[in-house]
Design a protein around this nucleic acid. Structure first.
Length: 155
DNA sequence: GCCAACGTTGGC
DNA sequence: GCCAACGTTGGC
């Protein structure tokens, strides 16, 4: 059964418009072990993703994406001089893994953090909890469905 | 820009 | 292996 996820991004770095333009992108640059483990060990092709903008005046879910393939080593960790190069990572046993994300839909308008906080069905959503700052978080299918409904065009 | 909360690092 | 110090995240 496909699982559901929420992935945060700083829209100044990469936003839903970039994903829509690119179609599919390698989600490189995650340097946190829990997030790495989610991508490497638990995400499967076809898993559905809420694409969340953080560190912006209007934080929230701006659209949907899909896990496009199996996890693979993060290409930047071995790229000399790259800001995300990790010289301690062994090419035979890479430290950092990631998945590719495929654009599914850009919402007509964001499902804002405020709107999500006001929705009783999302009361337990991890991204809304104080102090939770992982860039990748599991989402229940109920939570996913509710956010999709909130983001769907009116009518 | 502030600062709480967290993950990571490194001294011991 | 503990834990204080540090750097970063990210909401506000």
């Amino acid at each position: 059964m496909p699982r559901h996820w929420l992935i945060k991004t700083d829209p100044d770095t990469y936003d839903i418009e970039d994903l829509e333009r690119d179609g599919t992108t390698e989600w490189w640059g995650v340097r946190n072990y829990l997030a790495r483990n989610y991508m490497r060990d638990e995400m499967e092709p076809g898993d559905e993703v809420l694409f969340y903008h953080s560190s912006t005046p209007v934080t929230g879910v701006y659209g949907l994406a899909r896990v496009a393939g199996a996890a693979h080593p993060d290409s930047k960790q071995f790229q000399e001089g790259h800001p995300y190069e990790d010289r301690d990572s062994d090419p035979e046993d890479p430290t950092w893994w990631c998945v590719d994300l495929q654009h599914v839909q850009t919402f007509p308008g964001p499902v804002t953090r405020d709107a999500m906080k006001a929705e009783p069905g999302l009361a337990d959503m991890k991204v809304l909890q104080r102090g939770v700052r992982h860039s990748i978080l599991p989402v229940t299918s109920d939570q996913f469905r509710i956010v999709c409904r909130m983001g769907r065009p009116a009518g």
